[in-house]
């Protein structure tokens, strides 16, 4: 697997949104999907829960073949009229979104554990804006 990830607990994600916020959700369909931390199905479930539990307005859901490919994100023509973006991709995918929209808070819904090398896991350094 390219990078190892785990889903951040729903309660922790939920606590970062407030009622009425307009939210875009972006997920990666490679590493995070195969490790059940992202992908279309999980994104739809997360979206429904956040609408029901918090009362956010999900204005857009984007599934990227590879979240760390900036061209794919550009081609998805993401909206800039949102209050927050929820990233269900790895931290590299998070940087792609943050670089395009530096002024919009990008909530990480996935924690990147590192890069596997056989049975070892090489840790990576989290961006300062993300709680590792």
């Amino acid at each position: 697997m390219v990078c190892a990830v785990e889903a951040i607990p729903y309660e922790k994600i939920k606590s970062q949104f407030t009622q009425g916020e307009r939210v875009s959700i972006v997920t990666c369909n490679t590493c995070t999907r195969s490790q059940e931390a992202g992908g279309a199905k999980l994104m739809e479930e997360m979206s429904e829960l956040l609408v029901k539990d918090v009362g956010i307005e999900v204005v857009e859901e984007i599934v990227l073949t590879t979240g760390c490919n900036a061209d794919y994100y550009d081609q998805a023509n993401p909206r800039d009229d949102v209050d927050k973006i929820l990233c269900l991709g790895c931290w590299a995918g998070w940087t792609v979104i943050k670089r395009k929209f530096p002024d919009i808070p990008v909530i990480a819904g996935v924690r990147t554990l590192g890069i596997p090398e056989l049975s070892e896991m090489k840790a990576v350094v989290p961006p300062k804006e993300i709680e590792g």
């Binding site: 760390c68 900036a70 590299a92 995918g93 940087t95 590192g114 840790a123 990576v124």
Partner: peptide, 30 residues
């Protein structure tokens, strides 16, 4: 391997999330 990167046709691959211990900080620009 030295970390995780973000790719675009315009800029190619850029290192954004370095492996721990290589002496580089994460960078949104890469």
């Amino acid at each position: 391997s030295v970390g995780l990167g973000a790719y675009s046709k315009k800029e190619g691959m850029r290192l954004v999330i370095p492996m721990d211990g290589i002496g580089l900080e994460p960078s949104i620009e890469g």
